[in-house]
Design a binder for these strands. Sequence first.
DNA 1: ACAGCCATGTAACTCGTTACATGATTAC
DNA 2: GTAATCATGTAACGAGTTACATGGCTGT
Lengths: 193, 193
Amino acid sequence: MSQDPRDRTPELPVTSYALLGLLTFGDELTGYELKQRADNTLRFYWVAPAMSQIYTELGRLTEHGYVEPVTTQGGARRTTSYRITAAGSTALRAWIDESRVGFPTLKHTVLLRLLIGHASEPDRMRAILEDYVAELAGALRDLRDVRDSLRGADGPGEPFHYPSVVADWGLDYFAAETRHTRRALARLADVAP
Amino acid sequence: MSQDPRDRTPELPVTSYALLGLLTFGDELTGYELKQRADNTLRFYWVAPAMSQIYTELGRLTEHGYVEPVTTQGGARRTTSYRITAAGSTALRAWIDESRVGFPTLKHTVLLRLLIGHASEPDRMRAILEDYVAELAGALRDLRDVRDSLRGADGPGEPFHYPSVVADWGLDYFAAETRHTRRALARLADVAP
DNA sequence: ACAGCCATGTAACTCGTTACATGATTAC
DNA sequence: GTAATCATGTAACGAGTTACATGGCTGT
């Protein structure tokens, strides 16, 4: 087994490449800023890494020469921004082109509970589903803001084209999820109206 | 902080409750069988835990008295099945009713790459999306089989009612995901036909 | 003055994975 | 007889979390 060259363990964890990817949009970012970007976009499709992990990954990326720290002494305060290097771009490209993509993983806290709904009461299940609808509305709002912030540079060939395709996908995703939840609610209503 | 009683760390990891939940459908299962069930249904909405983890969780659940091992000596071979206890049912119910549900987590290997698509070539992105459509078709097939296997006991009040609601949700989910992928493909085609 | 944000890091810990190890039973 | 499946576990490790610790800057 393991003859497929794409089976070899990649040098870096995926989250490392995700953060590296966030540095390909032209600006140098501090760990703190990277966290904000991740919370803005990455959290919908990947994770919102803890601050501590961001610094860990930045250390790792630096060791590999994929990013370069740019330290600024602003008075008594030192901040370090990171810039992607040529080696970093190459590595990222290689990762996109050669790593095994695999199937997306869903940890659906709501569906997991619904699956064993018979272990509780229909009322509880309905409450969970209704809460979920409300949270989905929040996610939709947040993502819509992100999507709107991309306008102006979201055409084909423009810097935010791919992010805008992804954001629209995300909007469709949450809209679909809302429908699926409503549908489940309707079916539970059939049981006990 | 942490005044909300639901913020207290739950006694068990979620996967433990997930496996416990699989034992509420009436039968005693071995670790091996539990793995098969998990691969069948749980994998779509939660995870497909490794064998080794299943045994770990079963040990944990046994320690807590939430499951009872039933050892069978079948000739030279010993197998251990597990049965949920009354304490286990109570704990599961408490978990469903009181634990914080949170928002589902998506680790979308495809969208992550698409987000930074500008770091590679449109052709690569298209290939990734097309592969994904194919894999979705496979998932749909598998899930449809599962769903069909529930027929006969999937009405309101029947044992497999909740699982069937969840399975139908999953089918809708993958169908929607297929549409979203196609939509993204169409938008990439606008760039370079 | 004080809260809230900006900014960086370390330590302990847990979940979950892969690799390794072993052996019985069943189907061909 | 031998391959696949059934069955159970241990060990090493890695990714990612929470908790802890520190301190500068900004707005009111």
